[in-house]
Computed example of a mutant assay.
Amino acid sequence: MLVDVVSEDSRWETLGLEALAERGAQAALRELGLAPEGFEIAVLGCDDARIAVLNTEFRGKPAPTNVLSWPSEDRGAEAAGDMPDLPASPPSPMEAELGDIAISFETCAAEAAAAGKPLADHCLHLIVHGVLHLLGFDHIRDQDATLMEGLEVSILGKLGLPDPYCDERAGAAPNVSDDE
């Protein structure tokens, strides 16, 4: 398995976080031409209290968020809009661990309800989003955001999910927080 999931909140087990995380991670890697075999990602399914502590500790933001990611190495592109430095496929032993993702149940559930989306679909989107961060994608600069969001839309479309940013482009608030 590509993903190792630790659930600190039983609601994640009920939702099937392990299967969602595996599906999303595999789809993200395949979209980028990377064979999922040999890569490793750790996912923590937690609650708002736990992710608020992590958000405070690592980002200095004392509030819950939907998803956080910690890449094992900096792969980000130097020039805005360029592709990050992706690992080899199959990876070398040093490139096998892509990093860690934490995802909060309450925030995800609230966002999904507010957007009128199934919780599993929103969580799948956030896993894809987190995996792309592990691979060096970000959304700080406009050109990078355009690249990352385009990949998310493509990946989710192949998984049978609608464009998660269509409401945002129509003027609604985005569904993904700034988890840099």
Rank of each mutant, 00 (worst) to 15 (best):
Q143R: 15
P91Y: 01
D4A: 15
H139I: 02
P164C: 10
D85H: 11
P71W: 02
I127N: 05
I127E: 06
A42Y: 08
R169I: 06
D82E: 06
A172E: 12
V67S: 04
E18G: 13
P64H: 03
P93T: 11
L147Q: 03
E149L: 09
L119H: 07
P36D: 05
G16Y: 06
G136L: 00
P62E: 12
V128Y: 03
L126H: 12
R169Q: 08
D167R: 15
I51Y: 00
P162A: 13
P118Q: 13
L29H: 04
I127A: 06
A113D: 12
T65H: 03
L68I: 03
P87F: 03
H129R: 13
R50Q: 14
A79H: 08
G150L: 02
G60Q: 11
E111D: 09
C46Y: 01
S92A: 13
L126W: 08
G33R: 07
D47L: 02
W12M: 09
D48A: 15
D163F: 02
F58A: 13
A120K: 11
A172C: 13
E95K: 00
G33W: 09
G60V: 09
W12G: 02
E31M: 11
L159D: 04
A49V: 11
L132A: 07
G76K: 15
A172M: 14
A21M: 01
A112K: 08
E95A: 06
A88F: 04
D138Y: 06
G24Q: 08
A79S: 11
P164I: 11
T65G: 09
I51T: 07
E18F: 06
A79D: 06
T107K: 11
A79G: 05
E111Y: 08
M94R: 15
